[in-house]
Each structure stands twice: as C-alpha cells, then as structure tokens.
Computed example of a mutant assay.
Amino acid sequence: METRINELSEKQLDELAERIVFSIRKDREEERKQFKKYAEHNTALLLRYYHKLKGHTDSVKEQLEADQDTFWDHRRLDLSILMENKAKTVKLMNHVDYALEIYEKVCKNSDSAEERRHYQIIMRKYINDKRESDQQIADYFDKDRTTINRNCKEAIQDLSVILFGVDMLNYW
C-alpha cells in the first residue's frame, strides 16, 4: 500500500521531518568524526615522513634548474604530472613548516608546562635531524614513556587543528 504525502497528518509529517533531521545530523556528526580521525592520522604521517618529504621538495629546485634549457624542458614533452606532484609536495611542506612555527609560538606562550613540552616532543621525535625514541625523550624530561606518548598524541591533535583548520573541532 502506497501512502501519499497529502494523506499524512500534520503530526505524522512532523514526526517524519524529525526523523529526517535526526538522520542528517547523525550522518554529519559521523562525517566530522571521520574527518578528525583522518586528519590526525595524516598529521602523524606527515610528521613521520617529514624528512623524506623535505628531501623530495629539495630535489624540485635542483631538478628545475638542471632541466632548464635541456631536452626535458621542451614544450612538447609533458612532465607536468610529475612536476604537479612535486609542486603539491613543496606547497604541503611549506604549510607544515608554517604550522610548526605557529605551534611553537602557541606552546612557548602556554601557562601549562605540559603544553610547552608538546612542541619539544614533536621536534625531538619527528623533526630534528637526530630523532629520539620515546624512551630517550622520557628520560630527557624525566617523565614516564606513557606520559610522553600521551603528550605526543595531544600534540598531534593540536597540530592537526593548525594544519586542517576549523573542521578539526567537533562543535561548530
């Protein structure tokens, strides 16, 4: 039996509308949670592969200079896809470096000793040329390794907000 919309009472229409709104809100909340999860995962990956990505970006300038006025620079040869990928990496890494600068300022200006430690943990674990293990970092700060792991996760969440913006916040 098929029901037509004009056959529904006002109360039934209101209930239907409430269910639809509830379903849409639930879907949007799930999308926000997934975005946050992916953003934090991507932030951790960016940090983990920071040096490899920076190495990739350093090669772009050298390659452009080397290819200038050569066979590979010819207009009919299309290396644009490769160069687009390299350009995206350069742009992304510039954004990461900028986010790290902002995060450093935020952490250094914090009243919380724990938050001030967050930036240093990220630097020691991922960014510095001589990267340190969680245990080395824990020893340096005279903290338990689980505290360092927790601080690192919090730092990645904070850095994700700087990298990905307002979409990282659950309540908007």
Rank of each mutant, 00 (worst) to 15 (best):
T3Q: 13
T3K: 12
R4E: 12
E7T: 13
E7S: 15
E10S: 15
E10K: 15
K11D: 12
K11V: 15
D14G: 12
E15V: 11
L16N: 06
A17Y: 13
E18L: 14
R19S: 11
R19I: 03
V21C: 01
F22Q: 06
R25F: 10
D27Y: 14
R28I: 09
E31F: 01
K33W: 07
K33C: 05
Q34C: 03
Q34N: 06
F35R: 00
F35I: 00
F35C: 00
F35G: 01
K36R: 06
K37W: 01
H41C: 00
N42L: 01
T43V: 02
L45C: 03
L47S: 04
L47Y: 00
R48W: 00
R48G: 00
Y49H: 07
Y50A: 03
H51R: 07
K52L: 10
L53P: 00
G55H: 06
G55F: 04
H56M: 15
H56G: 14
V60K: 04
E62V: 14
Q63N: 07
E65Q: 07
D73H: 04
H74Q: 02
R76M: 12
R76V: 11
D78P: 09
D78G: 02
I81M: 10
L82M: 08
M83N: 04
E84I: 15
A87K: 03
A87Q: 08
K88C: 12
V90C: 03
K91G: 11
L92A: 03
N94Q: 15
V96A: 07
L100Q: 00
I102N: 09
I102Q: 13
E104L: 11
E104H: 09
E104N: 13
C107N: 03
D111C: 15
S112K: 04
A113M: 14
E115D: 10
R117E: 01
Q120N: 11
Q120C: 15
K125E: 00
K125Q: 07
D129F: 13
K130T: 05
R131T: 04
R131D: 01
I137A: 02
D139W: 03
D144W: 13
T146M: 10
R150S: 08
N151T: 09
C152T: 05
K153D: 04
K153E: 09
K153R: 15
E154T: 05
I156V: 08
I156P: 01
D158N: 08
S160H: 00
S160L: 05
S160F: 05
V161L: 09
V161K: 04
L163W: 08
G165T: 04
G165L: 05
V166E: 14
D167H: 11
M168D: 01
L169I: 07
N170D: 12
